[in-house]
Design a protein around this nucleic acid. Structure first.
Length: 1050
RNA sequence: GGGCCCGUAGCUUAGCAUGGUUGGAGCGCACGGCUGAUAACCGUGAGGUCACGCGUUCGAAUCGCGUCGGGCCCA
């Protein structure tokens, strides 16, 4: 049985009930297993980091995934969709450190690495559980029961295997490199982990004394004075022009000779507050190469006294500041590369904790570098080598987790040689299908083109240990690919591959020495990078990968261009040599209504829970899906969320409206199928069926290119425009028919077919609402039907039901109805009052409306609808206008009389005469140019335009029309009173109407039976001086007429 | 500083790949209608320098170049 649905759309109730149903009945698992054998669709979930709370962007991400997977599933695909969790790395270490009140790595060592690791694991797992629940609330169907987790041993093995493969292919390398370094976390961090924002730093101009030339200096500029102790060289651009200038302040004898790029001389001297200068020489940068200078702080730093400092050439030098760059190969990426190329010493007197080492000299040793900026400045000033100091606000990199400004230091690290396989990567991404196209062809391509070797080692604890063992005696390296391999090589059985247990495992080297694991762990980006095979339990399981890999589809936000899109590609290229995914949908970010990033500090963050709490998950889902193309950023708007909710509410009302009637009539869709009522279908029934199937086709097309916004907007338009505003209005009177009329049954069967199809179309996007409708309308009437709408096949558009001509005709009808209602408003005739005639006067060919004339009549409340031929209009009235400009010169003094006479003339006759060629008005001969004829719409007609013409509405009131109009006024008011009394639809009443106007009473008398029937009155009394008594008595004014109505239960 | 994307009514947006009759919607606002979906629903109206500038063209929201603003990524 179909159940009645009382009340408004209550998302919380609907969604809670549906979720329980899915869980109790294991619908998700059923949906997956029933598609076994279908075409395979391998989806890899980009694992969210286990932060504990999801935000709007994460919610959007999972909603996109869920909608696409539900759609795929309904289309018969066998889906692999393990949810994933990214659980290692610094963020969790930092959280646990905070929780334990730690400040440095030493605290962790003291506390015990094993206990620390346990805490991290525990923390990550609890965060995962919280987030799972939040995702489930959104209706996101992924395999939550058996997710892949980066902290599992199988997962660690996948990473190990990958590294072993890259080593076998010669792509793993140990290198001494300058890396981004977080001095707080005491670890290298990836480029992807550096966050840039504005920072105030010193801006200093320093004089480097040239060897053997008195008072002559090379000018450099830097924002990091702390790197000056590590200075080894200066770079100039080979093509720039440099000037040697003599500059002085007050005293010419105090003059100094400075070398500065020519265009920058004046600005540098201004910084140094010089009064005047003269140019001594000009030369190209190339001529400076090889020039020697003294380190400005050589007296403080013994090590610097051993180093020869020279000027070098480099293309990266820009014509800014002094046009010369101070080079500290131990503290800059370009510096390092230039240093290696030019054979400079890589001097790095800074330790992992960000403090100077003894190498920096006694004065600096032990000091934190960024805090030492001021001291370096002072020391330079003391030696007369500081030309100017100031401050600059610029973008500077920070550790993305602890927000500490990063430094660059040279350390030994492990690298994947991405630069060697860059071209292969570019070839591979060209084979991937990108949505939108530019995500791959422009954005990702650009990123790959600039990709450097990937530093995969981190000096931390909570991560996948690097499976690299090194012999202490001969230095030989061995990469272990699995737990089993480790056992075979070492004889040790390790319970958990994490640190610290794995650190204790030693291997016997072929040289007889002992091999120990390097203490590093993997960069956490490497974890998720191996997801596409780790989720298939490869290499532990060798079969799954053959069946599924590579991924058919992944989708993440555009920040993942440098993140997961890249890390996966890199890991896959070094191990398999091909891209790990076939298609990628890049989605946008959720911004606030102003288009600004949501951030806690601005306080403009909207959480998914907040939206779900107010409006429900289906509203949130439809909102994020329909608001933009997926690849554009969403400007979150509560107004639009409210709108989306309203649409669902209207859908809900449309869905529940016919139910009481169907129930009352005991309608059984199995006994009265659409096929059986074929003959009784009205044109509007065929129309809504056609529209429904056209909708299915539109959704299919849009989903083909992941245009989720088009799919969901088409659905919303259908619900609002076609279903609610039109079909429901048309079908209403038919549901009130009391007998077993075929017309009514046809309407029921149509509604049921439409709603059932709509539930299936809606299922991928608003799964809760769709399920609710399906359960009631389909399962409620057919217990044999599939248990859930999400088990159904996608509703392919039924071509035989699509009638595009009919759709065009109906579109025209709707336009005409709108125009008529416009005209009625102009003519002051409200819809409740019938009109005698509507004339459609098209200006171009319009579709035949034969079958839809009845719709037109009922919706315009008119007695007759006529369609005129193209260009034909109702007969117009003609008015005649004299033209004084012509009459004046012709008749002079008589002109006024002529004009008067013309005004009194019959326009029609005048026109006929003029056409005939002679028009005498008394004694006056009127020429054609003396008058003009104006066509006027007759008084009784009101006109309004529609796109292909004009409609004319005859608003003349006849007695019959007035009778009907008043009757409808009375009926409406009695209905209103019935409602007020809360009467059931089928209950009878007794009514008394007191009405003084005799004429109107006479009119109403003629409609007595009609009125009584409409309001279900067993007894209806009308008169002028009646005793008006009843359960409910109300006074009304209809137009300018006062009346009192009383009703009681009959 | 560089790459990519975006910028249309107060707000959210369609249209832009293939330039062509007065640039469509929804929300909000004003006025009106409907009243057996009713703490709903519908119509009409006002509201637009299509971010700005230059160019290509008979014709530009649409194509090109530049500027400004927003986003992501990089330096």
């Amino acid at each position: 049985m179909i159940s009645e649905v009382a009340g408004q759309y209550d998302a919380k109730e609907v969604e809670g009930r549906v979720r329980k149903f899915w869980e109790d009945r294991g619908i998700y698992a059923l949906a997956r297993t029933m598609r076994t054998g279908g075409r395979k669709f391998f989806f890899v979930d980009g694992p969210p980091y286990t932060t504990g709370r999801i935000h709007l962007g994460t919610a959007w991400n999972k909603i996109i995934k869920d909608s696409i997977l539900r759609y795929r599933s309904m289309n018969g695909f066998e889906i692999k969709d393990r949810a994933g969790w990214d659980m290692h790395g610094l963020p969790i270490e930092v959280k646990v450190e905070e929780h334990l009140g730690f400040e440095s790595k030493k605290d962790i060592e003291t506390y015990g690495v094993d206990r620390f690791i346990d805490k991290c694991k525990e923390f990550a797992l609890s965060q995962k559980d919280q987030m799972t629940e939040q995702f489930r609330t959104l209706g996101a169907w992924l395999n939550w029961e058996d997710p892949y987790m980066t902290l599992k041993d199988e997962y660690l093995e996948a990473a190990w295997w990958t590294l072993k493969r890259s080593d076998e292919r010669g792509l793993l390398e140990r290198g001494f490199r300058v890396v981004n370094w977080c001095p707080r976390c005491e670890t290298a961090i990836a480029d992807a982990e550096v966050e840039y924002w504005e920072e105030t730093d010193p801006s200093v101009y320093v004089k480097f004394p040239i060897v053997g030339e008195e008072k002559t200096f090379m000018m450099i500029w830097t924002t990091t004075p702390w790197t000056i102790p590590a200075n080894v060289g200066v770079a100039v651009h080979p093509d720039f022009e440099y000037s040697k200038v003599r500059a002085w302040k007050d005293d010419l004898d105090e003059a100094e000779i400075l070398i500065i790029a020519s265009p920058l001389v004046e600005s540098v001297l201004r910084e140094g507050r010089y009064k005047d200068y003269e140019v001594l020489d000009r030369f190209r940068g190339t001529e400076l190469a090889g020039l020697e200078y003294e380190h400005p702080l050589a007296d403080l730093i013994p090590a610097q006294r051993e180093i020869v400092h020279k000027i070098h050439l480099a293309d990266f030098v820009t014509a800014e500041n002094t046009g010369s760059v101070h080079i500290a190969p131990g503290h800059g990426l370009e510096d390092f590369e230039l240093g290696v190329a030019e054979g400079m010493e890589i001097f790095c007197p800074v330790g992992e904790d960000g403090r100077y080492t003894k190498e920096a000299g006694e004065k600096y040793a032990g000091k934190y570098v960024r805090a030492a900026n001021g001291e370096v400045d002072e020391d330079l000033a003391d030696r007369g080598l500081l030309l100017a100091e100031g401050e600059i606000v610029h973008r500077y990199g920070h550790c993305w987790r602890c927000k500490t400004p990063i430094i660059y230091i040279a350390t030994p690290q492990w690298f994947l040689k991405i630069s060697e396989i860059r071209d292969d990567m570019l070839d591979e991404i060209a084979k991937v299908k990108w949505y939108p196209d530019w995500a791959g062809s422009a954005r990702f391509r650009d990123w790959i083109s600039g990709a450097r070797d990937w530093c995969i080692s981190r000096q931390r604890y909570w991560g996948i240990p690097l499976p690299i063992w090194i012999c202490r005696d001969c230095g030989k390296k061995e990469v272990i690919g699995s737990m089993e391999e480790l056992r075979l090589r070492s004889g040790a059985v390790v319970e958990d591959l994490h640190r610290p247990a794995v650190d204790l495992v030693t291997i016997r080297c072929s040289c007889g020495g002992e091999m120990r694991r390097v203490p590093d762990v993997f960069d956490v980006w490497f974890d998720s990078a191996v997801a596409s095979w780790a989720t298939l339990n490869y290499p532990g399981d060798q079969e799954e990968i053959k069946e599924w890999w590579p991924a058919d589809f992944i989708t993440e936000g555009h920040d993942q261009t440098r993140g997961w899109f890249y890390s996966q590609l890199g890991a896959s290229m070094v191990s398999f040599g091909v891209a790990p995914y076939r298609s990628v949908l890049m989605h946008g970010f959720t911004l606030d209504d102003k288009g600004k990033k949501m951030s806690k500090s601005i306080g403009n963050v909207v959480s998914p829970e907040e939206v779900v709490g107010k409006f429900g998950a289906d509203t949130l889902r439809l909102y994020v899906l329909s608001s933009n193309a997926p690849w554009e950023d969403i400007h979150f708007s509560w107004d639009e969320v409210g709108n989306t909710n309203r649409m669902l509410n209207i859908l809900w009302n449309a869905y529940r409206f016919p139910l009481p009637y169907m129930i009352l009539d005991g309608f059984d869709p199995k006994r009265t199928t659409l096929d059986m009522v074929q003959e009784s279908l009205r044109p509007e029934d065929r129309w809504i069926l056609s529209r429904t199937n056209t909708l299915a086709a539109e959704v299919e097309t849009s989903m083909g290119s992941y245009q989720l916004q088009r799919a969901t907007r088409a659905i919303a338009d259908f619900v609002l425009e076609d279903l609610s505003r039109w079909y429901i209005q048309l079908v209403r009177p038919r549901t009130w028919i009391e007998t077993d009329d075929p017309d009514k049954l046809a309407a029921y069967a149509t509604i049921l077919e439409v709603m059932t199809t709509l539930a299936k179309i809606l299922a991928p996007f608003a799964p809760f609402t769709a399920e609710t409708i399906y359960q009631n309308l389909v399962r409620g009437t057919d217990p044999q039907a599939l248990e859930s709408v999400h088990l159904c096949n996608w509703q392919r558009p039924r071509e035989e039901l699509i009638d595009s001509t009919l759709e065009e005709e109906m579109a025209l009808v709707r336009e005409v109805v709108e125009a008529v209602s416009n005209a009625r408003q102009k003519g002051g005739r409200k819809l409740r009052w019938p009109v005698a005639e509507v004339t459609i006067s098209p200006k171009r060919e319009i579709p035949e409306l034969g079958g839809l004339l009845s719709v037109l009549k009922s919706q315009t409340n008119s007695k007759r609808v006529t369609v005129a031929a193209v260009g034909e209009m109702p007969e117009m009235e003609i008015a005649l206008n004299p033209v004084p400009k012509k009459i004046g010169p012709a008749f002079k003094g008589e002109a006024q009389k002529v004009i008067e006479a013309l005004k009194g003339a019959d326009p029609l006759e005048a026109r006929d005469r003029l056409i005939a060629g002679e028009f005498m008005l008394g004694p006056y001969a009127i020429a054609p140019d003396m008058v003009e004829f104006i066509e006027k719409i007759p008084e009784n007609l009101v006109a309004a335009d529609f796109s292909s013409g004009t409609v004319y509405v005859d608003v003349t009131l006849t007695e019959d029309l007035r009778a009907e109009g008043y009757a409808r006024e009375i009926i409406r008011r009695i209905q209103d009173m019935r409602k007020e009394m809360d009467l059931r639809v089928e209950e009878k009443i007794e009514a008394t109407i007191r009405l003084d106007d005799e004429v109107v009473r006479g009119l109403l008398e003629r409609m007595r039976d009609h009125i009584a029937a409409e309001v279900r009155a067993a007894r209806l009394e009308m008169g002028s001086d009646l005793q008006v008594r009843g359960f409910l008595v109300k006074e009304w004014s209809i137009e300018d007429l006062e009346t009192t109505i009383a009703i009681s239960r009959g």
